[in-house]
Design a protein around this nucleic acid. Structure first.
Lengths: 219, 219
DNA sequence: ACTCCGACTGATCGACCGGTCAGGATGTGG
DNA sequence: CCACATCCTGACCGGTCGATCAGTCGGAGT
């Protein structure tokens, strides 16, 4: 038996192993852990059922390997936000756009993580999922606090509420695409860039008239 | 055989049927459709396994009955928003607070609906779930457009983005309670009322200087 | 007393589940 | 040539799944 370790996932050893990982990722994201059988995965990956066990030991291990992969991917995303070449405002906008684009570009990762977050059992896997979300949240919160310290936010604005609003708006835009498309016939922003622009207006509406930092939310 | 109809769910006929419905609601919300067996439900409801089939026909029917129940519950919630006795601003604040409180008060309904929304299969059940969310969204969107027409929102504010921000922020507050509690030691708003107040500040920050009809949520 | 009906249960079914095992195919080092 | 390791498969196992069925029980109607 040559199964992968459970604590750390390495690269897939063969093409078949890679196909198994990819197929299981999609299926787990769509139907959840219990909704997918090893048969389904093997069939989608065009391998024998026993081969799945050969590479990943058991079902839980395969699921964990998927979570580990997506977690790594999402963590590396956060590194982009740390460069100080751009203004705080720009970094917030870039983070929001990057976050939204990545959700739209790889929905399976989102659903894989979301399914883990809504599980009441506090397993180690759920902890890691929470950790990723928590890091992302803290990062954005820190940027917003910085923005407020710079005087670019009204004093009565609560950075935490604003953080949750941005992250939540992104998720809702991602999740409700189908619904939005139906009622967006009158020219509402359905493109991510336009949506992020609208979202940034909510934070500091003085973005059109050329960076006027002291012009706050009037009226 | 005396199973309920599939298209419309009536009240549970016996105490046992009521217990089955309640037990299955919790289990389905926590573990999802495939994660729960009839055995689990029967055991939690303290009835025989065959009795579950007697009352609900099959597993899918039982699940559908749960969805129908929660959908009805959420739809009736929206009725509150239609009374014109309060100002538009108040109705938005009341809607947001009511929405958040209901999520916090009955998490199982939220998870039951969420699990349905993240299913890629476009079943009739998913349609109804989408319909409920869509109605709720349209309602809030309409109120915000009204608010903007009244001149209480900046002209560059996009009502749709604001709608998604409010709904999304509520959901994030609900979902990330555990994470928020950890980093909320420095006096951040962890109570729903305070959070909604902060959220309303984001919409119309001119709430402090004493408008006439906004006294309800400002302590 | 007799019938009928809905509530309810234990036993049981075939299907499918996750997982195992013996062994074939292929390559690699001695 | 042999020995060995890895990749991979078909056949198989015990257990659990959703669902069925025969039948018991108790109350209402006649």
């Amino acid at each position: 038996m040559q199964q992968q370790s459970s604590t750390q996932s390495a690269e897939p050893r063969t093409e078949a192993a890679r196909r198994i990982l990819e197929a299981s990722k999609i299926l787990f994201a769509e139907r959840g852990y219990d909704g997918v059988s090893i048969r389904d995965i093997a069939e989608k990956a065009r391998v024998s059922k026993a081969n799945v066990f050969h590479h990943f030991g058991n079902k839980a291990n395969l699921y964990e390997a998927n979570l580990h992969d997506t977690a790594e991917k999402l963590i590396t995303k956060l590194e982009v936000l740390r460069d100080t070449r751009h203004s705080v405002r720009d970094r917030i906008a870039r983070f929001a756009l990057l976050d939204l684009q990545e959700q739209l570009g790889d929905p399976h990762c989102v659903y894989l993580f979301l399914r883990q977050l809504i599980t009441p059992q506090r397993t180690a896997q759920r902890r890691t999922a929470e950790q990723v979300v928590s890091d992302s949240l803290k990062n954005l919160l820190h940027l917003l606090e910085q923005l407020k310290a710079d005087g670019e936010l009204p004093t009565e604005t609560d950075p935490l509420a604003l953080t949750l609003a941005i992250i939540g708006a992104n998720f809702m835009f991602f999740q409700l695409q189908g619904i939005l498309a139906e009622l967006g016939q009158d020219g509402n922003p359905v493109e991510p860039e336009a949506f992020i622009r609208s979202l940034m207006h909510l934070i500091t509406p003085a973005v059109d008239n050329g960076h006027d930092a002291q012009r706050h939310l009037t009226r």
